[in-house]
Amino acid sequence: MMDEKKYAELESKISPKPPLIRNLFTAFITGGTICLIGQGISVFYMTYFDFTERTASNPTVATLIFIAMLLTGFGQYRKIAQFGGAGSAVPITGFGNAVISAAIEHRSEGYVLGVGGNMFKLAGSVILFGVASAFIVALIKTILVKFGVVSW
């Protein structure tokens, strides 16, 4: 019998590597386009509603997630992701897609145990690590400010 190391060599020689240049390019284009659309939406909110450059990001994010809902529901987000990779996963629409796809998927187990219980099964870790790191960073900064090392 072949040993694992030898097999790993043989296997990696035959298995195609991800086409890195192409993937980076499509990620750039896809992610850039989503942010470009986001910029357009935020200009819209600034022009027609009472939002500033700072506050416009809230309705912009909500609008993008709404668009992600439609694309996910009609089975299109998956196709964009196959093309764009991280370009569609990293923007907030990817977060929306993770929540929405899990919600749609688990509807068959009911709204409470299915949708409610599984909605964050993919996106939950992002919230956890966001909150945990925000807590630690803000805590360190507060301590440093108290000791006069840095200022706000």
Binding site: A89, V90, P91
Partner: peptide, 12 residues
């Protein structure tokens, strides 16, 4: 476009 795209490139 460029900055958003570059952050996604890091992700990729």
């Amino acid at each position: 476009f460029v900055v958003g795209g570059l952050i996604c490139v890091i992700g990729q």
